[in-house]
């Protein structure tokens, strides 16, 4: 697919295009709705060059935790070690929200540089458990990839770089579920079962994954909600609605449930997203806003989600 040249890529070197994306992402005029800023962010993710990384890094000065955490995620997915320094500084900033620091640690794992092991080991003892567990996973992932079986993972139909490679040896949903739910196993092994179940994507696999939403680990529950957003199976909708509606659930998990519902985008996802779009927790409120935009995209004949170049190319022409 990389061989396909789209009109987006031909705009790559236009400096005005970068300026426009930066203006939108960082909301320079204070008038840009969050969901548009997200679309600009994913446009930069697809451009994936150093200039885009520099622009993305500027968004860390924002006051939206949701936006900052997504920027960290996107920097990891671009997979360029050029983003390592900024991601390390975010992880090391103890006054930053744990959700953002977690995403920075995960992004360092996604980029997968051996040189990130030092800082990840340092924050393996962070006071926040979400950060600790993310460092544990990122270390395991980097070591796994650099080990002798590192390149053996089956290719996934999803374009994301995952925090753990799918378990390629176990095929049975029941066995994968047993690994997934066994809290005595290392988190890395449980995640590998999670991504294997995601790749299976059957209703049976989805229902097995849903049991993970009762796990004691916040990080684990949030990842289950994330993979539901990828699978887009209507079978996961009841469990996701329950998660979003649970006011005792951590904001980071409710956020992921909201965005998964926006991605699945069946009609029963809509009322609950509208209901919580004014949630008291800002991360949840903003997630519902982004999810409602995603819902609209999924239900439209619109082709590009990351449309930051299409819209602005009109502006550039004027």
């Amino acid at each position: 697919m990389s061989s396909q040249i789209t009109s987006q890529e031909s705009l790559k070197l236009d400096p005005a295009a970068y300026d426009n994306l930066e203006t939108t992402l960082t909301n320079k005029n204070g008038q840009i709705p969050l969901h548009k800023r997200f679309r600009a962010m994913f446009t930069l993710k697809n451009l994936a060059d150093k200039e885009s990384i520099d622009i993305l890094a500027k968004a860390f000065d924002d006051d939206s935790i949701l936006l900052k955490h997504e920027v960290a995620y996107v920097l990891g997915q671009i997979k360029n070690p050029y983003a390592n320094p900024v991601l390390r500084s975010i992880l090391a900033n103890r006054s930053e929200d744990p959700m953002v620091r977690h995403e920075a640690a995960e992004a360092l794992g996604a980029i997968g540089d051996l040189s990130s092991l030092d800082i990840l080991e340092e924050y393996l003892h962070d006071e926040n458990v979400v950060v600790r567990e993310t460092c544990e996973l990122a270390i395991a992932k980097i070591k796994y990839e650099n080990g002798k079986n590192g390149q053996e993972s089956p290719k996934s139909i999803y374009t994301s770089i995952d925090p753990a490679p799918p378990n390629g040896k176990v095929q049975s949903v029941t066995k994968l579920r047993d690994i997934l739910l066994d809290t005595n196993l290392p988190l890395f092994e449980r995640y590998r079962a999670m991504f294997a179940l995601r790749n299976l994507g059957t209703t049976e696999a989805v229902l097995a994954l849903a049991q993970g939403l009762d796990d004691p680990s916040d990080l684990f529950r949030h990842e289950i909600a994330y993979v539901f957003g990828q699978i887009q199976s209507p079978a996961s909708v009841p469990a996701l609605i329950k998660t979003l509606e649970n006011m005792n659930e951590l904001y980071m998990v409710r956020h992921e449930a909201a965005e998964a519902l926006g991605s699945i985008a069946t009609s029963d996802c809509l009322p609950v997203l509208r209901k919580f779009k004014n949630d008291q927790e800002r991360v949840v409120k903003e997630s519902c806003e982004v999810a409602l935009d995603m819902f609209e995209y999924e239900n439209s004949q619109e082709f590009q989600y990351a449309d930051g170049l299409i819209n602005q190319s009109i502006a550039v022409d004027k």
Partner: peptide
């Protein structure tokens, strides 16, 4: 003709 959309965070593309 076949073209792939630029994805959002869940990484599932649309194909035209």
């Amino acid at each position: 003709e076949m073209s792939t959309s630029k994805t959002g965070k869940h990484g599932h593309a649309a194909i035209h």
